[in-house]
Simulated scan of single mutants.
Amino acid sequence: MFLDRDGTLTEPRHYPSHPDELVLQPDIGLPLRALQHAGFALVVVTNQSGLARGLLDTAALDAMHHRLRALLARHGVRLDGIYACPHHPDGTVPRYRRLCSCRKPAPGMLHQAAHDLDLDLSASWMVGDSSCDINAGHRAGTCTALVGSQPLPDVTPGVHRATTSDTLYEVVRCFLAGR
């Protein structure tokens, strides 16, 4: 299960740059534990253009992800991986200012995680709160779930299932009930 970070696992914040700014979505522990107990890998894939924009550095991002792991551990949840894209074509930090294959909606982070963790993309789900997340999942060949109130975005037609729900809890409940 590929999971977006901001707005999906954590409450939405505009360019969070400090660990204290990461606050888990309410009632997130139970559905994530259920997925973990069902044998699913839990992998965060997150665009972090704040690096390219100079709003944070890699040490701050590492500290934020350490906090995310600690917050989830309090709920008995362990992440199998965290993949972050630091790039943005309009960034102010030269080494991160570029087009890349990892920034969602491109599927690069999902492909890399699948390779590193030996995951089957066709048996995986991408869960997020934006069209970038859903399109990255479709491009990688996963099923997708949109969390939040926006309508499902237009995506390339195909055989991949897509669903939408207000919360991650509801997405996971429906997912596990339908397995």
Score class of each variant (00 low, 15 high):
residue 52 A to R: 03
residue 9 L to E: 00
residue 68 L to A: 02
residue 93 V to I: 11
residue 146 L to V: 04
residue 46 T to E: 02
residue 114 A to I: 13
residue 125 W to A: 02
residue 54 G to F: 09
residue 71 L to F: 03
residue 139 R to M: 14
residue 136 A to V: 08
residue 132 C to V: 14
residue 157 P to H: 14
residue 50 G to S: 11
residue 132 C to F: 15
residue 87 H to I: 12
residue 82 I to R: 01
residue 85 C to A: 10
residue 52 A to P: 03
residue 163 T to A: 09
residue 66 H to L: 12
residue 44 V to D: 02
residue 146 L to E: 14
residue 167 T to H: 08
residue 4 D to S: 04
residue 70 A to Y: 01
residue 102 C to K: 03
residue 159 V to L: 12
residue 79 L to F: 07
residue 132 C to A: 15
residue 34 A to Q: 09
residue 112 Q to D: 14
residue 137 G to W: 14
residue 86 P to R: 01
residue 71 L to T: 00
residue 165 S to V: 05
residue 80 D to M: 06
residue 27 D to A: 14
residue 50 G to T: 03
residue 149 S to D: 14
residue 177 A to R: 06
residue 10 T to A: 12
residue 104 K to A: 05
residue 103 R to F: 13
residue 61 L to D: 04
residue 152 L to S: 07
residue 5 R to L: 07
residue 103 R to K: 11
residue 128 G to S: 00
residue 58 T to R: 08
residue 128 G to D: 07
residue 2 F to A: 05
residue 132 C to T: 15
residue 128 G to K: 09
residue 103 R to N: 00
residue 117 L to K: 05
residue 87 H to P: 08
residue 159 V to G: 15
residue 125 W to R: 05
residue 63 A to S: 06
residue 167 T to Q: 13
residue 90 D to P: 07
residue 121 L to A: 07
residue 63 A to R: 02
residue 130 S to K: 10
residue 51 L to F: 11
residue 85 C to G: 05
residue 52 A to L: 07
residue 89 P to I: 03
residue 113 A to N: 01
residue 18 H to A: 10
residue 35 L to P: 05
residue 158 G to I: 02
residue 17 S to L: 02
residue 60 A to L: 06
residue 122 S to H: 15
residue 3 L to D: 10
residue 71 L to H: 04
residue 160 H to F: 10
residue 34 A to L: 07
residue 44 V to M: 02
residue 20 D to Y: 12
residue 155 V to Y: 12
residue 84 A to F: 11
residue 139 R to T: 10
residue 2 F to R: 00
residue 58 T to D: 08
residue 144 T to W: 10
residue 43 V to F: 07
residue 172 V to K: 14
residue 152 L to P: 06
residue 126 M to D: 03
residue 83 Y to P: 04
residue 77 V to R: 05
residue 68 L to Y: 07
residue 95 R to K: 12
residue 143 C to V: 06
residue 23 V to Q: 04
residue 35 L to Q: 06
residue 121 L to K: 01
residue 174 C to V: 08
residue 121 L to G: 08
residue 143 C to K: 13
residue 77 V to G: 00
residue 47 N to G: 07
residue 97 R to D: 01
residue 139 R to L: 15
residue 175 F to R: 14
residue 24 L to G: 00
residue 168 L to T: 09
residue 125 W to F: 04
residue 27 D to Y: 10
residue 35 L to I: 00
residue 82 I to F: 13
residue 123 A to D: 15
residue 102 C to M: 09
residue 69 R to G: 09
residue 137 G to T: 03
residue 164 T to V: 08
residue 59 A to H: 14
residue 149 S to H: 15
residue 118 D to K: 00
residue 35 L to F: 13
residue 144 T to H: 12
residue 96 Y to M: 04
residue 25 Q to G: 03
residue 170 E to W: 09
residue 75 H to F: 12
residue 94 P to H: 08
residue 40 F to L: 07
residue 167 T to C: 01
residue 56 L to R: 01
residue 1 M to R: 05
residue 123 A to S: 13
residue 160 H to N: 12
residue 160 H to E: 15
residue 2 F to D: 00
residue 143 C to N: 15
residue 124 S to R: 01
residue 122 S to I: 00
residue 78 R to W: 13
residue 121 L to C: 09
residue 153 P to C: 05
residue 59 A to D: 11
